[in-house]
Write a protein that binds this DNA or RNA. Structure first.
Lengths: 225, 225
DNA sequence: ATTAAAACTGAAGATTTGCTGAAGAACGCA
DNA sequence: TGCGTTCTTCAGCAAATCTTCAGTTTTAAT
């Protein structure tokens, strides 16, 4: 799961990123309005944590642009206690949740997880695709009710596939989601090839059909037949 | 076993915490509504002791929110004798027990233990998992009916494993439950490694199988096979 | 059919994570 | 206070995973 942390204070930004990275999220951070708007326009995230007060532009404007961009990301606003009006405005502009500073990191983590669950799993903990079942909070995968052990990258890959089932995914989009933007994936898709190969092998061995279809020149599509 | 004591009067709070800590509970305390709601949202407890009268908000509202949060914690309400209506309302809102001030600490301890027993042990005193048997009130463990001596951390760890059997537990979740929130576990899981190692060794020596499965990059799962 | 690009594969290093035993520190009890 | 137990720290080793790479197969277009 990929997050964007928009927060200008470096130490807070770092502690948020460290904490969430430790909990298996892939985090990217932005510290200015310009930085943030660029990342939001270029990449896709599962959830965005947005500090309303930014040095070079108002966070509400940023929020508006995110929403205008027709992005479906979940958004959590953080703000100081005396910026209550901004908070209310944020919710009206379509933020999914808010948090007042100072807050505790576990609480932020709980809310992120709740938003992601709401968005991708319709409130359930289980993701189903034919004979494959993913228990997301438990990070456990079963095929025909038999446990299947996946490595972290394999798990992330399968999760991304199932959430985006029946859609053609470019290799760059997948790579971006699994490794973030600091990775040099322009002319090297060997990572992906290897992990797709390993995931396919494990799924087949577990008795699932090969739902990972290669789309020549583009990427993959996860679907039946 | 991890408890949260919500009580605004410092001396009473401290004496409750001291008494229960002495009886091997891991206690955290909150003295205000805001403080309490935050802890409840971030952490997980086995039982919550809640004083209905709080300075900055009504305890009943807090109780309602705990229940709304879909938490499964047991809850004991404490209140002054003249707040009988609140007490009744509390039970109706889903509190598991109540106590009127002033009360004796041993009585509180008895009720906490009863709630935990009801919740985790379905009313029994024994927790069973294959050849392992835990007598919770007696803090005694047997494997194939032969006594097994565990240290406190080992005992707490095994108890947490068995209560959460078949679930993937992150190292952070385990650490939080065994050491509380004041511990700096971000990049140091050596505690856990050592205690898991010692617990495994003792269980194996006693003739039990190794039910503690390591989940690479995440934590552990306690289950058969 | 030929060809060049793209995709796949197995196996090798490199890296990260987990395990271990032993030593030092803290604790509880007499 | 002193003693034995338990808890924490640490450094070296082992294992799992990730990345790299060279060689092979597949694909689409000529």
């Amino acid at each position: 799961m990929k997050l964007l942390i928009i927060e200008d204070e470096p130490s807070l930004n770092k502690s948020i990123v460290d904490y969430l990275t430790d909990r298996q999220y892939l985090c990217e951070s932005a510290s200015t309005y310009a930085d943030a708007i660029e990342k939001v326009e270029c990449y896709q995230y599962d959830c965005i944590v947005l500090d309303i007060m930014l040095p070079d532009g108002n966070g509400l404007k940023l929020l508006q642009q995110i929403k205008a961009n027709n992005k479906t990301e979940g958004i959590i606003i953080i703000s100081a206690r005396n910026e209550l009006d901004d908070k209310v405005a944020g919710i009206e502009l379509g933020a999914d949740d808010y948090l007042t500073k100072p807050f505790h990191l576990p609480e932020l983590a709980v809310r992120i997880s709740a938003i992601i669950r709401r968005k991708n799993l319709q409130g359930s903990n289980l993701l189903l695709f034919e004979e494959i079942q993913m228990d997301v909070p438990g990070k456990a995968v079963t095929v025909n009710n038999k446990a299947l052990l996946l490595t972290r990258k394999e798990y992330d890959l399968l999760l991304y596939f199932i959430i985006n089932k029946n859609r053609v995914l470019s290799k760059n989009a997948i790579a971006e989601h699994l490794w973030g933007d600091d990775m040099d994936m322009v002319d090297n898709h060997d990572f992906l090839y290897t992990h797709v190969k390993n995931l396919r092998k494990k799924l087949l061995q577990a008795g699932a059909k090969d739902y990972i279809q290669s789309i020549y020149g583009i990427g993959y599509k996860f679907s039946i037949a």
